[in-house]
Amino acid sequence: MAVREGLLALLHEGPRYGYQLKTEFEAATGGVWPLNVGQVYTTLDRLERDGLVEVRGVEGETAPSQKTYAITVDGVAALGEWWEAVPSDDPPPRDELMLKVLMAIERGDDHALRVITHQRTVLLTLLQARRKERRAAGDESLAARLVTDALVARAEADLRWLDTCEEHLQRRPASATSAPTTASSTSTRKASR
């Protein structure tokens, strides 16, 4: 989770108190990344412990009990490193999709095509739901739009891959298709690829 760095990025704009960081973080992420205020303070405590933020005195209008946080020189350096670093190489979220299709092909092309078709329908239904939700919310902020675009782009990558799988299956020689799942038919299919 990059909440730490998100908070540092906001603090780089100037000192802020905890609740302000929560609301600004949520607005900047288009409402898809809700934070509870406890999580914000826990993160701020850790950032303070690590010397990346410091507590400043109480400022003008804020209530006396509210601490104002500011980024330190080390915090600015840590944030700079984060901008440069490539996001950690987590496994793609739909690795399971790939496994599912590969396993389905082992069972036979007809089954694989049905699985591909079903997965594509489900993915598109999810995309439609996402769009509807966004339109119903009437949130036309750039952040909300870009978050939707990111989800759509990722689903598109999966959908394109499903299209590619389907094309390959459709183009395989007749001898390679609709084979029962036996050891010999499997080896025939693999040899024809």
Partner: peptide, 20 residues
């Protein structure tokens, strides 16, 4: 898919048949 996601309904064709 990004455009299809705006619609209420998606009909999939393959080889001249509706598959989903």
């Amino acid at each position: 898919p990004r455009f299809a996601s705006w619609t209420d309904r998606v009909v999939f064709l393959r080889d001249g048949r509706i598959v989903d």
